[in-house]
Amino acid sequence: MSFLLRRAAFYAVAGFVAVTLNFLLPRLMPGDPATTLFAGYADQLGPDDLASLKEAYGLSDAPLLAQYADYLRSLLGGDLGTSLSQFPTPVTDLIRDGLGWSLLLGTVSVLIGFTAGTLLGSFAAWRRGSRFDTLVPPLTMFVGSFPYFFLALLVLYLFAVRWQALPQGHAYGMDVAPGLTPEFLGSVATHLLLPATTVALVSVGAWVLSIRNTMIGVLDEDYLTMAEAKGLRTWRVMGHYAARNAILPTVTSLGLAVGHVFSGQLLTEVVFTYPGLGNQLYAAVTTHDYPLMQALFLMITISVLAVNFAVDALYAALDPRVRGAATASS
């Protein structure tokens, strides 16, 4: 089996586990699942609504296995249930927008964090023991130990409330109409800046450290001495010889980190009322909208798995040895 196929199989298993977990959760909780699920809405919903909800949710007196088969069938049909707080909107409708914004925020912040971390970490390794090296990595680690939501509050307070330099929340201004206009895109960018910086700031420390430590090893390698002996220009030595090799181990850990960064991002969205999945999850929790909550959990998990797979593909593209090993063992 090739490397990527093997990884894909693993993510399929992980996705399956998440789906099963999602199915079991309400049914494993103490008490009658339907009562737990719809407790907060007993007054608003009539008996007919409740019955149809129960059905939509796959809660019946049928044996667990039959319910499970039912559940999988409706999942495959793209049916994730009906929102309680915004009854009777299907949760898929609600999630679609959130997913887009979350992916945007996530991609931008990981890119910023990874790029900055690579630059700072490489530089620290090249200037081993310099003042930069003794100050910057510990400093980024210190910021990295801030909880995301705390740094978010701090940044929000300073830049949006105190200095009023940037918007306080949401994904774009009320005064611009969505569309591919410069005004709209500009508004999206300014609204993105604070939450993306927050997430990048917290995550950058880990990249700095990882790149620095591998770079120190790479600088010691013969191929670097050879690159210099070849009289290549500095930027080529740094880029094609040092950085490309130093990034590899970090890319492997990128996959694990993505789940972590995404978790932090969810909290950051809450603070900035950024309309992504995190904010929706928060809203679902506070309104006890269990169907929405569960659908979000599934959506987030699947996004993270997909990103993980993308990272694996990137790794295979960057490291010929992985590809080679894969074809050899297939």
Binding site: E221, D222, Y223, T225, M226, A227, H240, Y241, R244, N245, L248, L318, D319, P320, R321
Partner: peptide, 10 residues
């Protein structure tokens, strides 16, 4: 050792 002296990713 050319294994170490050649860049493994190029």
């Amino acid at each position: 050792n050319a294994m170490n002296a050649l860049n493994p990713v190029l």
